[in-house]
């Protein structure tokens, strides 16, 4: 019963693909053959085509008020078209920030793993336990922390400066 339902659903999905023109040539030919020889496919096809026609003919389109276009055009006169985003987004800065984070994460991993000890113990028939101790104390040293804070502040200042500059440019325009 369930298999029959799945078959019907499969048939219907294929048929809709055929009607919507979403089949490849081979599939299209196969379905065209089935429509000529198989009564079930033919009746489903007729049913779907009737549904499609009904939808195309009977879907109502809503009308806004008479003043709709005029209202928008009134507002448009006082609106300026913004420059394309690609003109004011500096992709070099975005790439720079991405590179910084990537390098920082990679550096952290290298530092953390270089200070770790990794060993394996064989404890019986199938148990193979391995333990890994990361030496995070290396990262928590005051010098590294200060360096991180300074880099963070510098990046923050650069970002703010860039934002303010782009805003100024828009105001001038």
């Amino acid at each position: 019963m369930k298999a029959d339902m799945e078959n019907i659903e499969d048939l219907e999905l294929h048929l809709w693909d055929y009607i919507d023109g979403r089949c490849n040539a081979a599939e299209q030919e196969r379905i065209a053959q089935l429509l000529m020889t198989n009564e079930l496919w033919r009746s489903k096809y007729a049913e779907f085509m009737a549904f499609n026609t009904s939808m195309h003919d009977n879907m109502a389109i809503d009308q806004p008020s008479m003043r709709f276009a005029k209202n928008i055009m009134d507002s448009v006169t006082s609106t300026t078209i913004a420059p394309a985003a690609k003109n004011y987004i500096n992709f070099k800065i975005i790439k720079g920030i991405a590179a910084f984070f990537f390098i920082a994460i990679a550096g952290l991993c290298i530092v953390a793993f270089s200070g770790s000890s990794m060993h394996s113990t064989y404890t019986g028939y199938t148990n193979n336990k391995s333990s890994m101790n990361l030496n995070l104390s290396l990262l928590a040293s005051p010098a590294i922390m200060n360096l991180m804070i300074i880099i963070g502040i510098l990046l923050g200042l650069l970002l703010t400066d860039n934002l303010l500059r782009s805003r100024d440019k828009h105001v001038v325009r």
Partner: peptide
């Protein structure tokens, strides 16, 4: 817009907003 909000006044307001946004960002 009507399919979203099912209210004529609100749909009109949102539609106007859509055309204004489209105008403002037409260069995009």
């Amino acid at each position: 817009a009507m399919r979203h909000v099912n209210n004529r006044e609100l749909a009109e307001e949102l539609s106007q907003d859509v055309f204004l946004k489209a105008y403002r960002f037409l260069a995009d």
